[in-house]
Design a protein around this nucleic acid. Structure first.
Lengths: 113, 113
DNA sequence: CTGTTCGCTCACCTCAGGGTAACCACCCAC
DNA sequence: GTGGGTGGTTACCCTGAGGTGAGCGAACAG
């Protein structure tokens, strides 16, 4: 994303918002968070089906980024066919709570238009 | 930004958050909002100086997008040298309020690291 | 023996958001 | 006359996030 500063350089972070934007600044990240908010334990294929339009590659990379940021937990069961479950961490749950007012603002704006 | 869906197609908007993300999904948008939050009436040059690293072109285009989205008001005084002031609209003020919890989450995360 | 499910990985390519730099008209101070 | 400050515009270029499509390695169904 040219959009947001992925480089994670120690500079900037003028206000807390851009710190948060680094975490949620992927095209589908908030939708992933939303899906995991509705039901905490989701499998990879479930998420793919819940988020129409996302490709497997991008879903996998976004999940790995969210995991690295401590937002989601990834649990892999050693079965065959393989099973992997994703869940929000405590930080992820609090992030979702912090996003609630923004979601409300967005819903309000949708209705207004 | 390949990052977020600028096309403003009437599709998607699964939850309110991505509606909001369309508005704040520019590299510097939240910093502009932050600067206008601290003091409501800012001139173009003030904003440029408050946001180190932003170029004039990008600041101008972001301001025009925020204006089109009804987030900021642009008032041009017919003087010479020209004077232009930017201020948050009511929607912009409420957006900033909705961003507060996210900013708090970000600040908390900065301190934790 | 073919197809399907599952959760990915790899290689390649596109495209638009953003960066760079020059330029505009106008006025003032030096 | 030249330099600075005002608020931009225009042209071009570049990077990287994200899209495309293929494959993989077991197991189980038909």
């Amino acid at each position: 994303m040219a959009t947001l500063n992925r480089p994670k350089a120690p500079d900037r972070h003028v206000c807390g918002i851009d710190t948060a934007m680094e975490v949620i600044g992927g095209k589908w990240k908030v939708l992933i968070l939303w899906a995991l908010h509705e039901q905490p334990h989701r499998r990879f294929g479930e998420l793919r089906r819940l988020i129409p339009g996302i490709t497997e590659k991008v879903l996998a990379s976004h999940l790995r980024e969210l995991e690295a940021d401590g937002i989601v937990d990834r649990v892999s069961y050693d079965e065959v066919p393989p099973r992997v479950e994703y869940a929000l961490t405590k930080a992820g749950i609090r992030l979702n709570e912090a996003l609630e007012p923004l979601a409300a603002w967005g819903r309000e704006r949708q209705e207004a238009s």
